[in-house]
Design a protein around this nucleic acid. Structure first.
Length: 710
DNA sequence: GAGCACTGC
């Protein structure tokens, strides 16, 4: 009957908060919110949804966009008493911004301050308290919470949202939650049975299970196909909730265009000249394409009569500095139309209001990974049906819209249903390390919703053994493996941090690893290549990019410290100066601040581990030797013809590669370590630093000793 | 010599 009591309590809380708010100035705003809330499609099925959750341990909810599932369901469950005994309803999201905005919204609807009953937790920001009962968080964060609390015992309900996106974190989380739910219900039904099954490797980490309450799982997806999720959870019940979108008229071409950039230009001009007012959104594959089309559109406009020139072109893509990204939200002046040239950042991450027309050439740039060659590729491929629907939906958010697909309708039928899940296109080393730390010994047997290839497992297990994270028996090593799993980094970076303590350069390595962890902080408009190079000359290290990154970070730190004065307090004004400095050096200030945040978090981590923090000062040899000792899987040697060749166990997997043109490395050193190998127009190694080949046998004998003996 | 979709701990 605890649930009934909780129900009464919660209504009282709501009433009290509500009466407080009637006196406040936000009364009108709140009335509007509540009216909107009541009009959502999900509102009419509250009772039924709550009953379904009570009846089933796992429920799949398919809600189209605009159904209100993300904001309303947690409130329904709270009001129905699922948060008894201080338990939480947790809701995971794949992105940080989405997590914060939805939590703010729900707190407003509940009439509470953010961080009280409703809160959120993302990396670097925990806005929760002991009174928090509805907690929004990123899926990656819940995964890390599981390392500390394997049963996730604080949660009565966990809602995994946006599962159709199939990010690595979501996929791993689903497998993990399935195990946790299993173990928690077993512990309720029969403790002895669990004892017997503790030999079960997947549940090994739940051996010390005590009496616990069962875990309710709710899987929420926007895609129409709930079957795979339902099957995965043993035929779990699926409920559909109607969405609220305006109709979008679809148009197709008769033939596939030869050049879709030209076809895009034609489509934009045609819409601009013939259709009613309303902004246009076009999906392209990358910065280069966006910049060319921007130029094409602007050139064409010049030839139009004066009254037809009222078209504003706004680009948006990930590496564009955040201030310039914000321009897509600025409404076009009266009488003008806005055309937004976007990558798939506008598919999910950024929602732009006022779009009436979508132009979709039907392509996307996607990343693939070859575990044998350790090669990542960025390839332009056709989109999936799910992506096509998502893109067209962007035209129907504020009113009826139109979507112009630059391919024939029969081509749509040939598209894949949904994109290939990320877990099948990435390096598994980090995931395997996390699973091992969670006590999942048999990672190949882990219940993935879709299992990655055997070769991916083999290669990543090999790498983890070489790094010393796993023993030859595939067990997590102590202390190195455990320490590595604690750090929120890719295994090679974790290894570099741990080793750098011995090489007396942990200060430098903390910076290098933080900088490598954020997307490239430099933004280079294609027409300003030379200018960027000149202004940043002062940071460049001829020995390699890792030291260059350290130089940039230290220079930015000086700016921050110089202006923070004795008090150590940084005011808005200091950040203004910081941002100005960034702009001068073509640096995205938000990325750089992110690197600073990561740096302080990692610093705390290594202090807790008791690692000795020291600087190598001018003895940069130590730093490079440490890089060699940790990045020994990523080595390239210069060939007689001047082209580099990666080193691999099997010569079949060695590749001819080029040092990325952005590198600061000087001359053509015989041997380099690199951070990543990405194929675009060529196979490039990025972030390279020169080392001495002879160091490898000494510093990485587990990989190079044999070669040396030959 | 010449460039890179997105997300996350």
């Amino acid at each position: 009957m605890a649930q009934g009591r909780q129900f009464n309590n919660s209504t009282k809380t709501l009433k009290r908060n509500f009466s407080e708010h009637t006196q406040s100035s936000s009364y009108a705003k709140r009335q509007k919110l509540l009216k909107h809330k009541a009009s959502l499609p999900i509102a009419s099925v509250e009772k039924r949804l709550v009953e379904e959750v009570q009846k089933h341990d796992t429920l799949i909810i398919v809600g189209e966009t605009g159904s209100g599932k993300t904001t309303q369901l947690p409130q329904f469950l709270y009001n129905a008493g699922f948060c008894g005994n201080g338990k939480l309803v947790g809701i995971t999201q794949p992105r940080r911004v989405g997590t914060v905005s939805v939590a703010k919204r729900v707190a407003e609807e509940c009439g509470v301050a953010l961080g009280e009953k409703v809160g959120y937790s993302i990396r670097f920001e925990d806005v929760t308290s002991t009174s928090t009962r509805i907690k929004y968080m990123t899926d990656g964060l819940l995964l890390r919470e599981a390392l500390l609390d394997p049963y996730l015992s604080r949660y009565a309900v966990i809602i995994v949202d946006e599962v159709h996106e199939r990010t690595v974190h979501t996929d791993v989380l689903l497998g993990l939650l399935k195990n946790v739910q299993n173990a928690r219900s077993k512990s309720v039904n029969n403790d002895q049975q669990l004892e017997k099954e503790s030999a079960d490797q997947c549940l090994g980490f739940l051996k010390r299970c005590q009496r616990r309450s069962p875990l309710k799982l709710i899987i929420m997806s926007a895609s129409l196909d709930a079957r795979i999720f339902s099957q995965y959870f043993g035929g779990a019940k699926a409920v559909h909730i109607q969405g609220r979108q305006f109709p979008v008229d679809m148009f197709y071409t008769y033939h596939p265009p030869q050049y879709y950039l030209d076809a895009s230009l034609t489509a934009i001009l045609q819409i601009h000249l013939e259709e009613d007012p309303g902004d246009i959104l076009i999906f392209l594959t990358g910065q280069e394409e966006i910049e060319s089309l921007e130029k094409l559109v602007k050139d064409s406009l010049k030839q139009l009569p004066e009254n037809n020139k009222k078209l504003i072109v706004v680009p948006i893509f990930s590496s564009l500095p955040s201030e310039r990204q914000m321009r897509v939200f600025v409404p076009a002046p009266p009488g003008f139309r806005k055309v937004i040239l976007a990558t798939n950042i506008a598919e999910t991450s950024v929602t732009i209001p006022g779009i009436k027309y979508v132009v979709d050439p039907g392509f996307v740039k996607a990343r693939f990974y070859d575990p044998n060659k350790r090669l990542e590729s960025l390839i332009v491929i056709p989109i999936s049906k799910a992506q096509a629907l998502q893109r067209s939906g962007r035209a129907g958010r504020d009113g009826p819209g139109k979507c112009f697909c630059l391919y024939p309708e029969n081509e749509f039928e040939k598209l894949e249903e949904s994109p290939k899940p990320e877990i099948k296109r990435c390096n598994l080393s980090n995931i395997i390390l996390q699973l091992k730390a969670l006590g999942v010994d048999d990672v190949v047997g882990f219940g993935f919703i879709e299992k990655p290839s055997r070769q991916s497992f083999v290669k990543s297990l090999e790498e983890l053994i070489l790094l010393g994270a796993l023993t030859d028996e595939f067990k997590l090593s102590n202390p190195v493996g455990r320490q590595m799993a604690c750090l929120p980094l890719d295994p090679i970076y974790s290894k570099a941090l741990i080793l750098s303590s011995e090489f007396n350069c942990l200060e430098e390595m903390l910076i290098a690893v933080s900088m490598l962890s954020v997307k490239s902080i430099f933004f280079t408009p294609s027409e300003k290549l030379e200018e960027v190079r000149t202004v940043n000359k002062c940071f460049e290290s001829p020995e390699g990019d890792h030291l260059t990154l350290v130089n940039v970070y230290r220079a930015s730190n000086e700016i921050l410290e110089k202006w923070s004065g004795d008090s150590g307090l940084r005011t808005e004004n200091h950040y203004k100066i910081f941002r100005k400095w960034c702009k001068k050096h073509f640096i995205d200030s938000r990325s750089l601040r992110h690197a600073h945040d990561i740096h302080s978090q990692l610093r705390r981590n290594v202090e807790q581990m008791g690692l000795r923090i020291a600087s190598c000062g001018d003895d940069l040899l130590q730093f490079r030797r440490c890089l060699a000792a940790s990045f020994f899987c990523n080595v390239a040697l210069k060939q007689p013809d001047g082209i580099y060749r990666t080193l691999a166990n099997d010569p079949m997997n060695e590749l001819a590669v080029h040092i990325h043109p952005s590198s600061s490395i000087q001359g053509k050193p015989e041997c380099v370590v690199f951070d990543e190998l990405v194929e675009t127009s060529k196979k490039y190694i990025r972030h390279t630093t020169m080392i001495d080949y002879l160091w490898l046998a000494e510093l990485a004998p587990q990989r190079y000793a044999l070669e040396n003996q030959v």
